[in-house]
């Protein structure tokens, strides 16, 4: 069994993605929220309000630093400057967890600001594992790697995504961040069942879970295409899937993501209460 305490010091409780407009309200009444996730790239300035808020939050809450720009799944070496910025942030903040995505976002010196897909082959496996090794040795801590949401697949892939993630975790010792919304989105978009994905997923390595909202669209053939928008409440089938996952993993830190069309704090707090309820159910069950 994996030593998740080594991977992650987040409480097995609800967390939310922190938005600056919620700062005062969270400090006043956090509800069930015990930990907060910040996007690393928003806290790489030299000072001012962002860092002051982060210092104040870190005194009250466990913090998860979630990178969105490292391009771990990219074909090129990791950006040394960006790695240094991350090391600086993780160094002074000493967060409870650091996580990034199985995705790429940079080509050459162009940053595309999206989590882009990669083929799952022996070659990409080797490269991504090297990148994770570099991150973990630079930050001097294990990291969590998150499964992506997918809109398309690569004909050249020879690994399934859960097996690819399992092998990465085995080779690098990293933990996994299971985004249940992403599993649901990918299952609809690429035509598999979430249960088959979870059956193949190394759940023993999961140290954190994400849920979030998605939007509905359609592809060229009218097939449903779900969009990972983080712009609305968590959908009912994703709450159901969270309950299934928690029944298999046991209590785990669960984060509610809401990044666009961000609601007022009470609305987001209510979403965190639903996550709390899911966690209480599994604790009792």
């Amino acid at each position: 069994m994996l030593d998740t305490a080594r991977l992650n010091r987040l409480p097995a409780a609800p967390g939310v993605g922190f938005k600056p407009q919620h700062f005062a309200a969270i400090m006043e009444d956090a509800g069930p929220v015990r930990w907060l996730e910040i996007h690393a790239e928003n806290y790489m300035g030299d000072g001012g309000r962002p860092l002051a808020q982060l210092r104040a939050l870190a005194e009250r809450f466990a913090i998860s630093v979630h990178g969105v720009g490292l391009s771990i799944g990219g074909a090129q070496p990791l950006d040394k400057d960006h790695l240094a910025r991350l090391a600086k942030l993780v160094g002074w903040l000493d967060p409870a967890s650091f996580s990034e995505h199985l995705a790429w976002s940079s080509h050459g010196d162009t940053y595309l600001n999206d989590l882009l897909p990669l083929p799952y082959t022996n070659a990409t496996l080797t490269r991504v594992a090297e990148h994770i090794d570099t991150v973990q040795s630079t930050l001097r801590r294990p990291m969590l790697l998150e499964n992506p949401s997918s809109y398309l697949a690569f004909a050249e892939s020879t690994w399934s995504e859960p097996e690819f993630l399992a092998e990465l975790a085995r080779r690098t010792g990293c933990g996994l961040l299971l985004d249940v919304n992403n599993v649901f989105i990918s299952s609809v978009n690429l035509g598999f069942t979430p249960q088959s994905y979870l059956d193949a997923f190394p759940l023993s390595r999961v140290a954190e879970i994400h849920v979030g909202g998605h939007d509905h669209d359609a592809d060229d053939h009218g097939a449903p295409l779900l969009i990972d928008s983080h712009a609305r409440p968590v959908a009912p089938p994703v709450w159901d899937l969270l309950a299934e996952v928690l029944a298999r993993t046991g209590p785990c830190p669960v984060l509610v993501e809401w990044d666009n069309d961000v609601p007022d704090w009470p609305t987001l707090r209510d979403e965190a209460r639903r996550a709390e309820h899911a966690l209480q159910t599994v604790a009792v069950g």
């Binding site: 595309l112 600001n113 999206d114 882009l116 897909p117 083929p119 997918s150 809109y151 398309l152 697949a153 690569f154 004909a155 050249e156 978009n189 690429l190 035509g191 598999f192 669209d217 592809d219 060229d220 053939h221 097939a223 295409l225 969009i227």
Partner: peptide, 29 residues
């Protein structure tokens, strides 16, 4: 080439989701 919908059919306008993410998120920034 080589992008599919998960069932062997060409990805078609599915790439537009990613195009839109890139353009709209950076436009918003």
């Amino acid at each position: 080439e080589g992008l599919t919908d998960g069932n062997g059919q060409p990805a078609g306008r599915r790439l537009n989701v990613l195009r839109n993410n890139v353009a709209s998120s950076l436009g918003e920034a």
